[in-house]
Simulated assay, not measured.
Amino acid sequence: MAQSFWDAAASLISATERHPFLVSMVDGTLSLENFQYYAIQDALYLTDFAACLHLLGDKMATVNEEASQRLHRFAICAEEDEKELHRSFFKRWNIDANDAKPMPNTLLYTSFMTSIVATRPVAEGFAVLLPCFWVYMHVGKCMLALRNKLGGSVHRPPQYDAWIDMYGGDEFERDVNEFIALVDGVAEGAGSETLKRMEEHFMMSCRLEYLFWDQAQCLMQWSI
């Protein structure tokens, strides 16, 4: 069932894998300033994403204890493994990101995601979180393939390669496939209206993934 959501979002996925931010990260033309902006906003996003996974895990506790525990482990992975990548970046750059504030598209995405997980049925919560897993794995694989195609002649900051290695790697792919299986499980017994909502939330999160890179591309700030 999750595959049908992905298929419905095909045009969004296609546009995302060609996003200038991602492509320029691989070909070495992306400014470090843009990547630093992105990393700070992504760290803020991951805090809320982990909170949503914990909340969804709590909701699943009385339904499927095994799935509940897996969701909490996913949350810990986001808090520890993924954010550790960001913390290593900040240490290397001598940046203190503790006082950073979410920019417009970060707040838009996290608010939407949190609202769905907190107020809607668990199946919809799974769907709204799925693109963060699946889109990142997909673009990670695409950027890995592009890096291999370009070969070793391109110079890029080591943080770019670390990002590609994490999200294009086998370990992240295993986690993504596990989450997809969980989504398929909750979708299996869902009615047509719930499935429609799940697809809508999935597609909206795909749009917001694209916009997240958009704001890093243009270094979006609050205008007032």
Rank of each mutant, 00 (worst) to 15 (best):
D170W: 08
G169F: 15
L130T: 10
L195H: 05
M137A: 14
P131C: 03
G191C: 06
A162W: 05
C132S: 08
F126C: 09
G168S: 08
C132M: 03
G151N: 09
L195S: 05
H138Q: 14
E124I: 04
V183D: 06
A190N: 01
E193Y: 10
G185K: 08
A181F: 02
A190L: 04
G168H: 08
A145G: 09
D184H: 00
Q159T: 11
M137D: 14
G140M: 10
G169E: 09
E173N: 07
T194Y: 08
E188L: 03
R197A: 12
V154P: 12
D175G: 12
G191Q: 04
V128P: 07
G189Y: 05
D170Q: 11
C142K: 15
E124P: 08
H138W: 15
L129H: 03
W163C: 02
M143K: 13
D184W: 02
F179S: 01
G191D: 13
S192R: 06
C132R: 01
G152F: 05
V154H: 01
A187K: 00
K141P: 07
E171Y: 12
A190G: 05
G185N: 06
G191H: 05
Y167W: 15
A162C: 08
G185H: 08
R147Y: 12
V139L: 14
L130N: 04
D184V: 01
A145V: 05
R174D: 06
